[in-house]
Design a protein around this nucleic acid. Structure first.
Length: 742
DNA sequence: GAGCACTGC
């Protein structure tokens, strides 16, 4: 089988510079190499003594600085060079951790600093990210993702191996940074030999400073060039067309610099590329002199090799125009951008705790994001930003900053982590911004249902095992059940596949030929029991084809997702070996089935049996009337529909009982089942009674408990800073509210 | 007839 590989960029061949008279609009801009800047020229340099003095004298220090200030690379080095700090922290050899929200940043920063200090990477300076630990016993400056530090805290909740932790990019408010903030604030109270440094962009200074007990603050100016911002309101449903027109206007009438256009999704980016090319061709047909243009889309679901094309230089008389999603907002930095076009919208996942449904919605960006996008034009020289919305839209419709992740996601995993850190009373954990109460309740309930928490909300032995695995707790639960049903090798592959991005290669819907080809390719793997065994077949086929990249292309499989699944599987495999938990409910079912000789050697059945122990709350029964593909949820009786892309839909045979691991939809009536499999009702009948047993108030500790409470490390005698007082007042109010509601 | 932003362990 051979399929056409899709083309990701369009080269528009126009007139060369010499032939166009009167147009001064070309194109490439030379850019400075920041690697060549001397450390002493960085804006942060003149603050060195002040920073060191404040860190010596204060347990918590906050430092703000715009990009280019040098805070991420220089502060750890200053600390290492200090003669006073080791004495104050009673450590002859300081160990410093610097957290980053992203893996690439952790690696890049470690590289840079090891280069500056002329030591090999992994020696004095190293990094640690998932699947890759580049440190040694000599390492004193360790760059790491915040998730890795949180995992380390599970082993040692006072992080006693570090003298200083620097939480970098705290303004991004990633879920893990938020949790670490709360945890490290407690560590500061317990360890006199510890220092916390929090760095952030200039926004939200007040929020952080209040939260951190009005700690001292140093503000460092950045190295950003001026960006002129222009507003022009357009209809938001025509943003692609207007964005393309703006890009072409820039191309014809503005000076040096590439163009970066922010749109909301991959479809929009692909469409914009085509419309842009067509429009340029029409201009040429009318006899207009149009210079050459390199047109590129950029979004996360693209193969990485294609993504990297945006960094490659193009010919001197050609202008690069990149149509991108918000991946270029923070994750990828492209040099040489002189112009930004910002549509003002973003696609965001919204989680509804009441329905448990996730949906992607196009919403206006925040003011902070709008500034971030504009700033992308001023990294190497002065730039311009064209906003496709009015100034009043910016002022009136846009929130100051984006809704923090902790307010948007399913919190099961977070709550389990906190419980495993021996924080009993998670409702009163000092969050910088508390999550919604309902989301907290639902997370507790889910953890109770899978046996991670007992009815009083205390973590169980099983819960500690689940927390130790780097997976969603429900997936961890399936993995443990698979040990009993003797299908753990298959389950390792399955949970790894379920933990990655979409395994099917994304094909733009206008590409009809390849859409059909992709469908045919998917058919080879489909299993009649549903999507889970189908996923397993994909993984096994890939393994049988020696993990070949070409095989992925030929079969329209997302190679990056499978590579990641293989890495995750490898990591889990080494962790699961020592798991021995007794007294689990699946033992009873296993023995019953064995007695009745009802458990075949068929791994498909053993796999789906184990799946039930993590997801029985997601079982659903076919409605006996009405259309095919409609199911009633066993937990709350909502109506759900099987998605057209799922294996069961493609085969067209709808079993009486199913279980799903992924559901989406914007409204309750549109709950759409994406990944589901056939089960038998006998498999879950002993489990479902638990659905009605959860007493939410007791679970979250709002009801008087029978046994005395163990003291937790986050209990403070008397709150001193206003942020905690406000939080405590809010929690007292919520407690009263819940009591009154019932 | 609607839908496939972005991270991370």
């Amino acid at each position: 089988m051979k399929y056409k590989i899709k083309k990701f960029f369009i080269q528009f061949k126009g007139f060369s510079k010499k032939k166009i008279e009167g147009i001064d609009s070309i194109c490439r801009m030379p850019y400075l190499n920041k690697m060549d800047q001397f450390a002493s020229e960085l804006p942060i340099h003149k603050y060195k003594d002040q920073i060191l003095q404040l860190i010596c004298e204060n347990p918590i220090v906050m430092i703000t600085g715009e990009p280019g200030s040098g805070k991420t690379t220089q502060i750890p080095q200053y600390l290492l060079e200090s003669s006073d700090l080791p004495r104050i922290l009673k450590s002859s050899k300081l160990k410093i951790a610097i957290t980053q929200p992203r893996r690439v940043a952790a690696i890049a920063m470690a590289r840079r600093v090891s280069y500056e200090r002329k030591c090999g990477l992994g020696k004095e300076v190293g990094y640690s990210i998932r699947f890759e630990d580049c440190t040694s016993s000599k390492t004193q400056i360790k760059y790491m993702t915040d998730g890795v530090l949180l995992r380390e805290a599970l082993q040692d909740n006072q992080l006693s191996r570090y003298s200083v932790v620097i939480l970098d990019e705290a303004h991004e408010r990633s879920l893990d940074t938020d949790i670490l903030l709360g945890l490290l604030k407690q560590v500061v109270q317990l360890r006199k030999d510890f220092r916390l440094v929090v760095t952030s962009a200039t926004l939200d200074i007040e929020l952080f400073q209040n939260y951190l007990g009005n700690c001292p603050l140093i503000q460092i100016e950045g190295r950003q060039y001026e960006v002129e911002v222009l507003h022009s309101a357009v209809k938001s449903d025509l943003r692609v067309e207007f964005a393309v027109n703006a890009a072409i206007r820039i191309h014809l009438h503005e000076g040096l610099g590439d163009v970066l256009v922010f749109l909301t999704g991959s479809e929009e980016c692909e469409k914009a590329c085509r419309v842009c090319f067509d429009t340029l061709q029409k201009l040429v047909a009318k006899g207009k002199p149009v210079p050459s243009m390199m047109i590129l889309p950029l979004y996360g679901a693209m193969p990485s090799e294609e993504q990297s094309k945006v960094f490659k230089p193009c010919p001197e008389d050609t202008r690069k125009v990149i149509f991108s999603t918000n991946i270029a907002e923070t994750s990828l930095t492209i040099n040489g951008i002189g112009f930004v076009i910002d549509c003002g919208y973003i696609k965001q996942k919204a989680y509804n705790p009441r329905t448990g449904l996730d949906a992607l919605m196009v919403t206006p960006i925040s003011k902070q994001q709008a500034k971030q996008r504009a700033g992308r034009a001023g990294r190497t020289q002065e730039g311009k930003c064209f906003r496709l919305y009015s100034e009043s839209f910016f002022e009136e419709q846009m929130a100051e900053s984006a809704v923090a992740e902790i307010k948007r996601v399913n919190l099961s995993s977070t709550i389990l982590t906190l419980k495993a850190l021996d924080i009993r009373d998670v409702i009163n954990f000092g969050f910088i911004e508390p999550p919604d109460h309902e989301a907290l309740l639902m997370a507790h309930k889910q953890l109770f249902l899978i046996g991670a928490l007992d009815e009083d909300g205390s973590i169980t032995e099983l819960g500690r095992s689940l927390a130790s695995l780097p997976l969603e707790p429900t997936y961890s639960r399936c993995l443990i059940a698979s040990l009993i049903f003797k299908s753990y090798s298959e389950m390792l592959s399955l949970v790894a596949m379920l933990s990655t991005e979409n395994i099917w290669q994304n094909v733009p819907k206008m590409d009809l030929e390849n859409t059909e080809n992709a469908k045919q390719a998917q058919l080879q793997f489909i299993d009649k029991s549903g999507d889970h065994v189908t996923y397993l077949k994909v993984f096994d086929s890939w393994r049988d084809n020696e993990y070949s990249e070409a095989w992925c292309y030929e079969n329209f499989i997302n190679a990056r997702a499978l590579r990641q699944a293989r890495d995750i599987r490898g990591q889990l495999k080494t962790m699961i070996k020592n798991f021995r938990i007794s007294g689990l409910p699946e033992e009873k079912l296993y023995n019953e089935l064995m007695e009745k000789k009802a458990l075949s050697s068929d791994s498909s059945i053993r796999l789906r049996l184990a799946l039930c122990f993590g997801f029985y709350m997601n079982a659903a029964r076919a409605v006996s009337y009405g259309q095919e593909g409609s199911y009633l949820s066993v937990s709350d009786g909502t109506m759900l529909h099987v998605d057209k892309q799922s294996s069961i839909s493609i085969l067209g045979k709808y079993p009486p009982w199913i279980i799903y691991t992924h559901l989406s939809g914007s409204t309750l009536s549109h709950g759409s089942l994406k990944v589901l499999s056939k089960i038998r009702s006998e498999w879950i009948e002993d489990l479902t009674p638990k659905l009605s047993q959860a007493n939410l108030e007791r679970l979250v500790g709002l009801q008087k408990q029978k046994r005395p409470r163990e003291p937790s490390i986050n209990e403070e005698k008397e709150a001193e800073d206003p942020a905690i007082k406000v939080n405590q007042a809010r929690e007292r109010y919520l407690k009263r509210k819940v009591k009154n509601d019932t």
